[in-house]
């Protein structure tokens, strides 16, 4: 009977522990994160064709980079460049916001690493991503 009580207590304590860990589910949605998502979503309608044509690709550190801008008409190249840097600025802020919203600013790097894999996994076939030293077509 006492053994039973003892194990019960241990089990209870494990459950308590699990509850603590599960509290960090990362699916937070602060106004800052919503704003970033909305801005990235709006930008994606412009960036989409550039992924498909190989003008930009997904980098292994969860950003995007210009792979070959020659397919973009000269007059649009400046805008294309600022599109890429604006996307990367948003992505930096997104990773940072998710980390801070969870009360763990030090997770920013881990979150970024997680995203790096997920962006590439979810990319459409035909898009380019960085692997090793070069670009690979998915």
């Amino acid at each position: 009977m006492k053994k039973f009580l003892l194990s019960l207590l241990v089990i209870v304590s494990i459950f308590t522990a699990n509850w603590v860990a599960a509290a960090a589910d990362l699916e937070v949605n602060t106004p800052a994160i919503s704003a970033l998502k909305a801005s990235m979503q709006a930008r994606h309608s412009q960036l989409g064709p550039f992924y498909s044509s190989g003008a930009v690709g997904l980098t292994k550190d969860a950003f995007i980079a210009i792979k070959d801008a020659t397919a973009v008409p000269l007059k649009d190249r400046g805008g294309f460049n600022s599109l890429v840097s604006a996307e990367n600025a948003d992505r930096t802020n997104l990773y940072k916001e998710i980390a801070t919203a969870n009360g763990h600013p030090e997770w920013q790097g881990d979150i970024q690493n997680t995203f790096a894999g997920r962006w590439i996994d979810k990319a459409q076939s035909g898009w380019f991503y960085q692997s090793g030293g070069g670009w690979v077509k998915k």
Binding site: I66, K67, D68, T70, V72, L74, R77
Partner: peptide, 11 residues
């Protein structure tokens, strides 16, 4: 002319 990344180019 154009460089590889297309960041310096003329047509």
């Amino acid at each position: 002319f154009s460089d590889e990344a297309g960041l310096h180019a003329a047509e």
